[in-house]
Amino acid sequence: MTQAIQTHQSQPLLTGLKDALPLMGGYIPVAISFGLISLQSGFSVLETILISTLVYAGASQFLFVAMVASGAPMWLVVVMTLLINARHVVYGPNLAPYMTKSPWWLALMHGLTDQIFALAHTRLPQLNEKQRICWFTGASLLAWMSWVGGTALGAIAGGELINQWPLLADVLPFALPALFLVLLAPKFNTKIWALTLGCTTLIALIIKLQGFSNAAIPVAALIGTLLFYVVKNQAKWSK
């Protein structure tokens, strides 16, 4: 991994773009389906694209259009979508030690999605200080463009695309779990981390299979964090 970074050290923006390529595989098909569903829910093409551009948070956008279409009160729609997005609050502080003193970081935080966080959490510590902002700009811009572009494609020509390439729509989303796997793999080097992350993965999977899609990520992550503390304290006591 370090080797790959050294090869592109002079072009951190390009490295960022390259690192975010696997994200496109996950973002574009999901964005296309968002475009399609949003239009079916009664939103216009422009409204659909603007939602993706401004809100830029997958799960909450799906919930937003579904709730608006079902006629839910607007205050409830706002509260529910913000609740889903509340998980984002832990991302910034985790990246803070690797950020330089540039006001641009604040603007770039619009692009701090789940996947960009996961990518940055692995990559930023490997880059030197000067390269970090360029890397983050490249990676987050490509991801944002993929999401907005995919939404536009879905809103304008989604139905036709899915009809012509049904396999592609099924296969490309696998890029997301594959990317998460590669980002987590280096952490499995100690027993405590392997146990924490392994259990968290399994718990999240089970919770989502039970039908609680939105609770799965925060609840599993909280249980995993508690487990980490329990194992750590037990190791202390047994010494």
Partner: peptide, 17 residues
């Protein structure tokens, strides 16, 4: 906070599977 970050990634991995 240092545990919650990677735990969120693991949870996202689980749901995306």
């Amino acid at each position: 906070l240092t545990v919650l970050g990677p735990a969120m990634i693991a949870a996202m991995f689980g749901t995306s599977l």
